[in-house]
């Protein structure tokens, strides 16, 4: 899978110079399935298990075991108190057939557009512009635009409730101030508007993330490619589609994967802003998990939703990265 990786140490170029011409093709470090060769004397190997042990125990006890437990729970009808009854795959069948659950997954897909597509589109626009010019103060812009990311989602939600407030919220006030008073809305209270309004908050939060990732990617595209495109007479638009976009394939995949995961996991935002309402216009799977497990006593169903969610997240991540890799060939 594809992912962001951390900084290489800012190692002095002279201390660790890059591969020189004629460097011997050294055997690759076998990581992954390959069987390790006989161990060179003195090379630490088995001690590796010791280094991993504490992390692995924590992971096994608090992720692997609960995950197995979740699968088990998902096969029962259980209210959390009395004795459960065997459900088989019924809880999973409900995920597909129960209209309330189906719509919660549908909502999650709508939110994908606001969490993933829109932020990445904005990020691409900015990256495309940055690619063409030496932007002074880019670091400043990046810091500011990234800022919504670091604020707790609960705070963000509280804040946007104030902005969306129909009576004296900032958004309606702003519309009135510019003479568009007719457009004022009950943003979070309207059945049709509530979902996009929640989505808008997510876009506000995540375009900074997409922008940071994508502008970083742009700076790794060799300048010579742009020079070549310009020599070939490409204009700004051609340049974007011929150089910038293909060069950002990996970063786009990372940004889409991350934001997609955030979208599907979305709980706090909905919980604070709408509690799934009005009606169930903004209910999402994660909210259903919480609601069913801890409010309405449908623990098995909640577990099944959680597992389904994990599977969907996994499949979408794999799909995005497959597409990105295929494009790379």
């Amino acid at each position: 899978m594809s992912a962001i990786e951390p900084a290489t140490p800012t190692s002095p170029a002279s201390a660790v110079a890059g591969g020189a011409a004629g460097a011997e093709a050294k055997p690759d470090w076998p990581l992954g399935g390959t069987r390790p060769e006989a161990r060179p004397p003195g090379e630490p190997r088995r001690v590796g298990y010791l280094y991993i042990l504490p992390a692995f125990l924590i992971l096994a006890g608090l992720i692997l075991y609960p995950l197995g437990h979740a699968v088990y729970l998902s096969l029962w009808h259980w209210d959390g108190l009395t004795t459960g009854t065997w459900a088989g795959l019924e809880n999973y069948a409900d995920v597909v057939s129960d209209p309330a659950l189906r719509s919660s997954f549908a909502h999650a897909l709508v939110l994908l557009a606001f969490y993933a597509l829109l932020p990445v589109a904005i990020g691409l626009l900015i990256a495309g512009l940055v690619a063409r010019a030496q932007v002074r103060g880019l670091a400043f812009f990046r810091t500011v635009i990234f800022l919504p990311q670091v604020i707790a989602m609960v705070v963000v939600a509280v804040m946007w409730r104030m902005i969306y407030e129909p009576e004296n919220g900032a958004l309606n006030e702003l519309l009135r101030a510019v003479g568009l008073g007719s457009l004022t809305q009950s943003w979070l209270g309207d059945f049709d508007l509530a979902l996009p309004s929640v989505g808008g908050i997510a876009t506000w939060v995540y375009y900074g993330l997409a922008m940071v990732l994508l502008t970083a990617g742009v700076q790794k595209i060799p300048q010579s490619l742009y020079d070549a495109a310009r020599v070939d007479g490409a204009g700004p638009v051609r340049e974007f589609f011929a150089v910038t976009l293909p060069g950002l394939r990996g970063e786009i995949a990372v940004a889409l994967t991350l934001t997609t995961i955030f979208a599907l996991r979305n709980f706090d935002l909905v919980y604070i802003t709408t509690k799934g309402g009005p009606g169930d216009a903004t209910s999402v799977p994660a909210f259903e998990v919480y609601d069913r497990a801890f409010q309405t006593g449908q623990v098995g169903s909640a577990a099944a939703i959680g597992i389904s969610l994990a599977v969907v997240i996994f499949l979408i991540s794999v799909l995005i990265n497959r597409v990105a890799e295929r494009g790379a060939r």
Binding site: L31, G32, A70, G80, R265, A286, A293, A302, G306, L309
Partner: peptide, 25 residues
């Protein structure tokens, strides 16, 4: 090491929402 690393990756992919119910109990 390859297989073990996939276990760690799994931990990265599984959302809190999928584990919260059993974790609570």
């Amino acid at each position: 090491s390859g297989v073990l690393f996939y276990v760690f990756l799994l931990g990265l992919m599984v959302p809190m929402e999928a584990m919260i119910v059993p974790l609570y109990y």
